[in-house]
Design a protein around this nucleic acid. Structure first.
Lengths: 211, 211
DNA sequence: AACTGTGAAGTTTTTCACAGCC
DNA sequence: GGCTGTGAAAAACTTCACAGTT
């Protein structure tokens, strides 16, 4: 996960920032304007000390005696995570999952814009899914390179995921969110994150009663 | 995450076991019958020492000089994670996401069986989604308690997720996989895991070129 | 009085390195 | 020769606790 060896800020810290951002946005929706490391920690199940230390990596965002101005902190975190822009995303796979992703409206206010939907199946190519016309994989490389797209979501069956990943790497993609339940091999400099609901559930069953 | 304070085996170790299982299953599909901590680590991007140490918590599953018999190791890991049975799962929310989950065929061979689909919308209740008839939330508690269901997936909009979680707790659910981009508050003894694609992407943008 | 930011201490996690076995 | 299992060492991460600010 941490692409740089000489990385000043631990990757585990970076990984928590989106959670802080999500909780802060929620607090704001509730009409709260100022919060504290304690309140935020309570919501997230994280210690207040950890939140303060994490944030301190990026400068003093809080005020002693007061806490953190939510608007200000949100803005700073968005800057740190490079969310002060819209990242265009390509989705590969127009099946049930790819369709659900295409319909979802929760990306745009968090820094992302689903921009293209690709599928290998000729029967799907050309059809409309939400606001997208499904494109063939033959157009993948041209489309993504021309538009400097760096992020893709892989929503194809496991047996095709590595092939698709190879095409994405070829097309200059630097970040892949892989929904297929399989580990991808990619060159240095390309990041992969995984979403596999079964992994989460198998983690939890360890702690469940036998019943 | 770790429900027990006095927990012999670190939760972070438990969290990796499903990944080992997934990679092992894949190796088996490729016709490989024996593997080593080195080979497995290579596939997963994890050090061989870590894999050996993780597995050693549960006993000696390998053979010196040889490695690990995949069938045997898979069986052992399934025992540890209590996957030597089928866990019934309730899905709450029959929108795009809930539907995609209902259609997905990848649960049953990994220990789970989607068994019920619930939704609050009267227009959706009674309709067919894949092999399920959508049920009303009023039937939630009875259905789940009667069937000793311990696991649920929350696939409802963020603003309803906490309400649904409360109902699930009330119905005796012990493990929740939450797809809504919001932190849930649950009593001691109930686990929650989160799936939020945006969190993964925001994590990765930190490392992307500004472009 | 309340809260941040931070060195220092404490804890957890990972890696090393090697004895022992196949 | 190749590989596991494991104490010991190293590294990473979290918490403590308090000086300093509002």
């Amino acid at each position: 996960m941490p692409p740089k060896i000489e990385n000043r800020i631990p990757d585990i810290v970076i990984g928590r920032l989106p959670l802080y951002l999500r909780a802060l946005t929620r607090l704001k929706q509730e009409g709260i304007e100022v919060t504290s490391s304690h309140e935020l920690g309570q919501r997230l199940g994280i210690s207040s000390a950890q939140i303060r230390k994490d944030l301190s990596h990026f400068g003093g965002f809080g005020k002693q005696g007061t806490g953190y101005q939510i608007d200000f902190l949100v803005d700073k975190l968005q800057n740190v995570l490079k969310l002060d822009r819209h990242w265009k995303i390509a989705v590969i796979g127009a099946g049930n999952l790819g369709s659900a992703i295409s319909h979802y409206r929760g990306f745009s206010d968090r820094g992302f814009e689903i921009s293209w939907l690709f599928d290998a199946d000729p029967d799907k190519v050309g059809t409309q899914v939400d606001r997208f016309v499904v494109r063939p994989l033959s157009e993948l490389k041209d489309t993504l390179t021309k538009n400097h797209c760096q992020i893709a979501m892989v929503a194809v069956p496991a047996q095709h995921a590595q092939t698709v990943a190879n095409m994405l790497v070829e097309a200059g993609i630097k970040a892949i969110l892989n929904y297929a339940p399989i580990n991808l091999t990619v060159p240095e400099g390309v990041m992969v994150q995984y979403i596999d609901p079964v992994v989460h559930m198998q983690h939890m069953t360890y702690y469940l009663e036998d019943k």
